[in-house]
Amino acid sequence: MTGRRLLALLRRDLALLLLGGRRGGAMLPLLFFVAVAMLFPFAVGPDAPLLARTGGGVIWVAALLAAILPLDRLVEPDLELGMFDQWALRGLAEEWVIAIRVVAHWLSFGPPLMLAALPASALLGIAAETLRTVELGLLVGTPGLAAIGVMVAALTAGLRGGAALAGLLVVPLAVPLLVFGAGSLAPGGETGLALTAAVSLVLLAIAPFAGGAAVRAARG
C-alpha cells in the first residue's frame, strides 16, 4: 500500500517540478545556470588560462545558485493546500513525503544541470579532463544540494520572508559540498569526489527526518 502511495506521490511531484511543470519551470534554473557561466568571462575578462583554472569553481557556484531558485515552491504550497494534512490522516509519514520530494527535486535540476555543464564548460574553456571531474562531482554533489534544498524549504515554509531566508540558510549548509566538490578540481584533488559523495549521503540520510519534523512543526 505504501508503495502505491509513494509512486502516486512521485508521479505528482515530477509532474509539478520537471520541465513544463507548474512549480518547476526546471528550465529557469537551467537558463540561470548557463547565464551565470556566460557572464563570468565578461566579468573577469578574456584571460583564457584564468578562466580555465577558475571555471570549475564557477560551475559549482552556479549550480548552487540554480538549486536555490525553486526553494519556495518545494514545500510551502502543499502546506497551504492542506495536502500534508490529508497525507497525515492517511497514515503516510511526512518523512516519506520529504524523501520523495528530494528525489523529485534532484531529478528536476541535477541531470539537467549536468547537461548544461557541457555548454557552460565550453564557454569557460574548461579542458575535457577537468570537465569529466566536474561532471562526476555534480553527479555525486547535486543530490546533497537537493537534500539541503528540500530540508531548508520545509524549515522555512510558512515563515514571512521564507524565500529569502531559505537562500540565506542554504549557502552555509552547502559549504562542505562546495569545498570538496570544487576542491576535487585541483591537481591531485580526486579524493574530493569521495568526500563530496560522503557529504551528500549524510545529507540525504538526514533530510527526510529534519524535513518531516519541520513540516509537523509548521502545521502547528
Binding site: 505528482r12 509539478l16 493546500l81 492542506g82 495536502m83 494534512d85 490522516l89
Partner: peptide, 11 residues
C-alpha cells in the same frame, strides 16, 4: 479519519 476543511487539497 477522512477530513474536509476549507482547503480542498486539490492542485
Amino acid at each position: 479519519v477522512g477530513l474536509i476543511d476549507e482547503r480542498p487539497a486539490l492542485d
